[in-house]
Write a protein that binds this DNA or RNA. Structure first.
Lengths: 112, 112
DNA sequence: CAGTATCCCCCGGGATACTG
DNA sequence: CAGTATCCCGGGGGATACTG
């Protein structure tokens, strides 16, 4: 979540388990419910639904239901959600650059 | 935490409740244990200790105990921790810029 | 001052099964 | 296919009290 910005009464939960991953899955175009489940290995339909609803509520994604049988529902990043891709990349870059250091810090902390 | 970067086996928990805030409290210089408790309103000593230990373990902060009575322990951002300030700023900037949109998105979602 | 020591609670998230 | 409906569990985090 977006912390450190003083008393923000309504924190955006980017720190939860799935939101960031979902944004990544949607950043290259719209995806259907079942298409999201594949890369998000291990997510259950219940949790995926909850996450998507929350993101929809916050204006990060849009949900479009195409009527018919079988049903087809498409999720897409809203502009607001897209604007998060940059910041996410920043964090990812940090992680990729510094993870080794963190790991070795942990090791030297252990053996001590 | 740093998600969306593929199976990172050891995620850094920036998404937890306190880590980011602690970094903010330390970014302008070292602070003592009790000095940290003030801006981190509501944190209990137990949780602050746990958070600090985890950050120390990951090489984000250093802990220096000055012997004597009363005890004096100083926490300081390690280089690795300092390198997180930039990314954190990025997220903060996003939050400040887009929080109003999120809030209004929530409202229009509610009334519907 | 800088922590430990206990106890406890909530809820995010998982497992499984069922349905329009 | 795209979800609901239930049930359930662990652990992050809080409250409170105590100590070197």
């Amino acid at each position: 979540m977006f912390t450190g910005c003083a008393p923000v009464t309504a924190p955006i939960r980017i720190g939860d388990k799935w939101t960031a991953k979902i944004i990544r899955c949607l950043q290259d175009g719209p995806r259907r419910f079942s298409e999201l489940k594949v890369p998000l290995t291990g997510i259950t339909p219940k949790v995926l639904t909850e996450s998507l609803r929350a993101m929809e509520r916050d204006g990060l994604v849009t949900r479009t239901a195409h009527p018919g049988i079988p049903p087809k529902v498409v999720y897409e990043l809203a502009p607001l959600g897209h604007s998060l891709v940059g910041p996410l990349d920043t964090m990812c870059a940090w992680s990729r650059a510094n993870l080794p250091q963190v790991l070795s810090a942990r090791e030297s902390y252990e053996s001590r």
